[in-house]
């Protein structure tokens, strides 16, 4: 069992949980994920690590309450226990292999969307601490959906906000903001890293392709075990089938078949919505 030591509400339906998991915290690196199972009946949910503290032995995750298991997870509070917390899984981001000397010469552009903003944070922090230049674009539908803006500001060179309705920062999609930065402000980057909804990552890669800007994406495919056993997370990269859990989760975005990935992500959607109805029904019964 793993203890929730901190819980915060970041935005509507988006929560931060800091979990006591010393072994995971000790080994975690930017880019990796964990598998969380809320209770005996829960699913194994893959979540990208949003922060880790080796000294305190804690790992932070950020969750949007959408499915049955994520909603169950979000009803828990500080001091509550979750059944399982396994990780860190997947490969760390490629740049963790680079020396501080190499990193200090590089300019990164991060594009973060929705809850994907949370896992961008430890990457930006890592790079910033090692002298890399990092710009970050955070995209959201509207200002109230933005998360991590204050923390991010402290660890990046320039933070740009893009909202669909213009309620904060740039009005428009993150892709339009990328174009503006490169075309109008003359910004140059060695690499772009995009983490967010599949559809956002797809369009970011289409945009950066025009500039031949190398782009890494972090895929949030369906998984069961997260260790290479099930193959539910199969994704086509450069025409080859790869497992997101052990070959990823980060891949060259220009090589990923996003249309297939989005279709595969929806494989259990009808079962999941049935389960949600069932869950709601149960909750109502207990409430009476």
């Amino acid at each position: 069992m793993f203890k929730i030591v901190e819980k915060r509400t970041l935005a509507d339906n988006i929560y931060l949980l800091r979990i006591e998991a010393p072994r995971v915290a000790q080994s975690a690196l930017p880019g990796q994920f964990v598998i969380v199972r809320v209770d005996e009946q829960g699913e194994r949910v893959p979540l990208t690590i949003a922060d880790f503290d080796k000294e305190q032995g804690t790992v932070t995750i950020v969750i949007q309450a959408i499915g049955v298991s994520t909603r169950k997870l979000c009803t828990l509070g500080e001091g509550d226990m979750i059944a399982d917390f396994a990780g860190p899984l997947g490969n760390p981001s490629e740049f963790v292999e680079m020396s501080a000397d190499e990193l200090s010469k590089r300019r990164f552009l991060f594009v973060a969307g929705g809850v994907g903003t949370a896992p961008v944070y430890p990457q930006v922090k890592w790079l910033h601490e090692r002298g890399a230049k990092v710009d970050v674009i955070i995209g959201a539908k509207t200002a109230s959906m933005l998360i991590y803006t204050e923390q991010m500001k402290r660890v990046c060179d320039n933070l740009y906000i893009a909202t669909d309705d213009g309620s904060c920062g740039f009005k428009g999609m993150v892709t339009a903001k990328i174009k503006q930065l490169i075309d109008e402000e003359g910004k140059q980057y060695n690499e772009c890293i995009a983490i967010g909804p599949m559809i956002m990552m797809k369009f970011v890669t289409l945009t950066t392709r025009e500039y031949s800007l190398r782009t890494t994406v972090s895929l949030n495919a369906l998984m069961v075990d997260g260790t290479g056993m099930c193959g539910a997370c199969r994704v086509s990269v450069g025409g080859k089938t790869r497992f997101t859990c052990v070959d990823g989760p980060e891949f060259d975005g220009h090589e990923v078949d996003f249309d297939e990935a989005m279709r595969r992500q929806a494989m259990y959607r009808s079962q999941e919505s049935n389960a949600s109805v069932k869950h709601e029904h149960k909750c109502n019964c207990y409430g009476k």
Binding site: S27, A86, G87, P88
Partner: peptide, 8 residues
């Protein structure tokens, strides 16, 4: 929940 090669 211990993946040897990753967790330790």
């Amino acid at each position: 929940d211990v993946v040897v090669g990753r967790t330790i």
